[in-house]
Computed example of a mutant assay.
Amino acid sequence: MNTYSKDHIQNLCKSHMNQYVLIETNQGEQLQGVIVDLDDDHVYVVTPVIHNQDQRQFYPYSGYYGYPYYGYPQGPGVGLRRLILPLTAIAALSLLPWF
């Protein structure tokens, strides 16, 4: 696998800003998403997430008068998550077509 400089990866990410891309990490993992932001050390990517029935989770947050309130469980469906990746962890980046 090729190892590119941090500047090369940063320029590649900058040229693909707000586009749907496939990112391969140095560990061989692949993820798809849209590059939404970039700084000197990190790339910010929004990726799709598919939830199935077994992945129900409750997200606690503070309710009225300090009582804890638990949000609705995530049932089956599709959502989005934001990932922050270090530029040095990216091995390759390629543009993907929208479906």
Results as ranks from 00 to 15, higher is better:
residue 60 P to R: 02
residue 42 H to T: 06
residue 46 V to F: 03
residue 62 S to R: 09
residue 56 R to H: 06
residue 66 G to S: 07
residue 47 T to R: 01
residue 55 Q to I: 05
residue 29 E to I: 13
residue 70 Y to K: 06
residue 30 Q to I: 11
residue 31 L to C: 11
residue 63 G to P: 00
residue 36 V to S: 03
residue 37 D to I: 02
residue 57 Q to T: 12
residue 41 D to V: 10
residue 78 V to I: 15
residue 41 D to I: 09
residue 32 Q to K: 12
residue 63 G to D: 04
residue 67 Y to K: 15
residue 38 L to E: 00
residue 39 D to R: 12
residue 38 L to D: 02
residue 72 Y to A: 09
residue 65 Y to F: 02
residue 29 E to M: 13
residue 36 V to N: 03
residue 28 G to P: 13
residue 80 L to F: 09
residue 35 I to K: 01
residue 67 Y to M: 13
residue 41 D to F: 13
residue 41 D to E: 15
residue 47 T to A: 10
residue 46 V to Y: 01
residue 51 H to I: 04
residue 73 P to N: 04
residue 45 V to A: 00
residue 60 P to K: 03
residue 52 N to E: 09
residue 78 V to L: 14
residue 52 N to L: 11
residue 36 V to A: 01
residue 48 P to W: 00
residue 60 P to W: 04
residue 43 V to N: 01
residue 65 Y to M: 06
residue 39 D to P: 05
residue 47 T to Y: 01
residue 60 P to G: 08
residue 60 P to F: 05
residue 50 I to T: 15
residue 29 E to P: 04
residue 68 P to R: 08
residue 75 G to D: 10
residue 51 H to N: 07
residue 33 G to Q: 01
residue 54 D to T: 10
residue 47 T to H: 00
residue 63 G to Y: 02
residue 31 L to F: 11
residue 32 Q to R: 09
residue 43 V to T: 02
residue 58 F to D: 03
residue 72 Y to T: 04
residue 68 P to E: 12
residue 50 I to R: 09
residue 27 Q to S: 15
residue 33 G to W: 00
residue 67 Y to A: 13
residue 29 E to Q: 15
residue 33 G to C: 05
residue 40 D to F: 11
residue 69 Y to H: 14
residue 59 Y to R: 10
residue 67 Y to V: 11
residue 55 Q to W: 04
residue 54 D to H: 07
residue 69 Y to T: 14
residue 58 F to V: 06
residue 35 I to S: 01
residue 73 P to S: 09
residue 51 H to W: 05
residue 57 Q to A: 12
residue 57 Q to D: 06
residue 39 D to Y: 14
residue 76 P to M: 12
residue 70 Y to F: 15
residue 33 G to Y: 00
residue 32 Q to A: 09
residue 27 Q to M: 13
residue 74 Q to V: 02
residue 57 Q to S: 10
residue 54 D to V: 09
residue 76 P to D: 10
residue 37 D to Q: 07
residue 37 D to G: 11
residue 68 P to M: 11
residue 71 G to F: 05
residue 72 Y to D: 08
residue 78 V to G: 04
residue 75 G to I: 11
residue 66 G to I: 07
residue 70 Y to P: 02
residue 78 V to T: 15
residue 41 D to S: 12
residue 76 P to G: 12
residue 71 G to D: 14
residue 34 V to P: 00
residue 40 D to V: 08
residue 59 Y to T: 15
residue 59 Y to E: 13
residue 43 V to D: 01
residue 47 T to P: 01
residue 33 G to R: 00
residue 50 I to L: 15
residue 43 V to L: 01
residue 70 Y to R: 07
residue 31 L to Y: 02
residue 72 Y to Q: 08
residue 35 I to D: 00
